[in-house]
């Protein structure tokens, strides 16, 4: 490697990380000794690495073993099932809509009113039996 033949950025990175073969690494370091630009690149890499190293690992709050040991796992928490349950509910709703068709609001209102009348009849003791009241009011 001549003084004018500079190593590439990834090569300098690999040299800094100790990932090059000894001969290649030695050539790059020899080049850096006489090339201020490449030496500066290597020094910058070392500075960034030092900054990164100053950030220590955080530790988990509790040991994992009890949560992961075979046979110790209970039902999956709802949070993780949320997506599956939500999608299943949506699919069921769409399927029900397709099977039963749109709801006739007039019929629904009439049925509700009829049901209320029927409830009051039973409550007032006017019907002989709740079952009979249902048949009387729905006309079935």
């Amino acid at each position: 490697m001549t003084p004018s033949e500079h190593p590439t950025g990834p090569e300098l990175q690999a040299c800094h990380d100790g990932e090059l073969e000894d001969t290649r690494s030695a050539r790059i370091r020899a080049h850096c000794a006489s090339c201020a630009a490449c030496r500066g690149e290597l020094e910058a890499l070392a500075s960034v690495a030092a900054l990164l190293a100053a950030d220590p690992d955080r530790a988990p709050v509790r040991p994992l073993w009890n949560a992961v040991r075979p046979g110790s796992r209970g039902p999956v928490p709802l949070g993780r099932m949320g997506w599956g349950l939500g999608l299943a509910a949506c699919a069921a709703g769409i399927a029900a809509g397709l099977v039963f068709g749109p709801v006739d609001q007039a019929t629904t209102a009439a049925t509700a009113k009829s049901g209320w009348t029927e409830t009051m009849t039973i409550w007032n003791g006017q019907a002989t039996s709740p079952l009979l009241a249902v048949f009387e009011n729905t006309g079935d």
Partner: peptide
Amino acid sequence: VQMLLHRAMQALRKDLL
């Protein structure tokens, strides 16, 4: 990997230094 690390370190250098 070598390329990913090179790019990451260049970005961090720009950001941090």
